[in-house]
Computed example of a mutant assay.
Amino acid sequence: MSKATFICGIAAGPLFVLSFLIQGSVRNGYDPLRHPVSSLALGDHGWVQSATFLATGALTTVFAVGLRRNLRSGPGRSWGPSLVGVWALGLVGAGLFTTDPVSGYPAGSPDLLPAYGSTQAALHDAVSLVAFVAILGACIVFARRFAAANRRGWALYSAATAIVVLVTLGLSNAAFAQSPNLVAFGGLFQRIMIVAAWSWLTLLTQDVKSRARRVT
């Protein structure tokens, strides 16, 4: 893998997280604890979040291709990079298709629309779900790969990340569906999921980089 490939893999996660943290802190009426990251794509400055989806998706796609070339043997050598690639393409799709308002953002919108307001919103939700399922699957595949290589720390970390993503995906979806006990924390649950997934992928990139350096 080239140096540029590693840079793409390492930069994507921090860029995504930093972007939504800054945007969420300056948007009027936006509550990071309550509202989803995708809602930042709505409103006058929504292009910033859309661009963030596209940019980080493109960076991760480059890394996924390089990862596929790097993993030449062992369990998950095909499925692991492929699932990371699906995560990347899901990010691109989320940038191309804008979500509907939910949980009262933007201000004046209903807590939950009775139906999708547009085909774009339906596609956004579909590609986002596929992306999260893909990164969850990637964690499981790499957990198995690390276990086979007797790298117990990484195997446990990958499995734990999969569990966190699965649980917070369910909680955030229930919250955005206006579950009374969860709705106020939908954004928090989703942010835990996103940070956990990106942290794992960023650290995985670092690990692959360090091991590739030892080989060369």
Rank of each mutant, 00 (worst) to 15 (best):
M1K: 07
S2Q: 09
A4W: 12
F6D: 12
G9V: 05
I10H: 00
P14F: 04
P14Q: 08
S19C: 12
F20I: 12
L21H: 00
Q23T: 10
S25A: 15
N28Q: 14
Y30K: 15
D31F: 13
D31E: 10
H35L: 06
S39E: 14
S39Q: 11
L42P: 02
D44V: 03
H45G: 01
G46I: 03
G46N: 07
V48H: 09
V48Y: 14
A51S: 09
L54G: 01
T56Q: 07
T60Q: 15
V62R: 10
F63N: 14
F63E: 14
G66A: 11
L67M: 15
R68Q: 12
L71P: 11
R72C: 02
S73C: 04
S73M: 04
S78D: 11
P81S: 11
S82P: 12
G85K: 02
G85P: 09
L91E: 03
V92M: 11
G95D: 05
L96T: 11
F97Y: 12
F97M: 05
T98H: 09
G104W: 06
Y105H: 08
Y105G: 13
G108L: 02
L113I: 10
A115L: 01
Y116K: 06
T119Q: 11
Q120E: 14
V130A: 15
A131C: 13
F132S: 00
V133F: 12
A134G: 07
L136N: 08
L136E: 08
G137I: 03
C139F: 10
A149I: 00
N150A: 12
R152K: 13
A155R: 03
A155T: 03
S158E: 04
A159T: 05
A159Q: 04
A162S: 08
A162P: 06
I163C: 11
L169C: 02
L171P: 00
S172W: 06
A174T: 00
F176G: 02
A177C: 01
Q178H: 04
P180A: 07
G186L: 06
F189G: 10
R191P: 00
R191H: 03
I192V: 15
M193H: 09
I194P: 10
I194W: 00
V195C: 05
V195T: 14
A196E: 01
S199K: 02
W200N: 01
W200D: 01
L201M: 13
L203Y: 06
L203N: 02
L203M: 12
Q206I: 13
Q206Y: 06
V208F: 07
K209E: 13
S210C: 05
R214N: 13
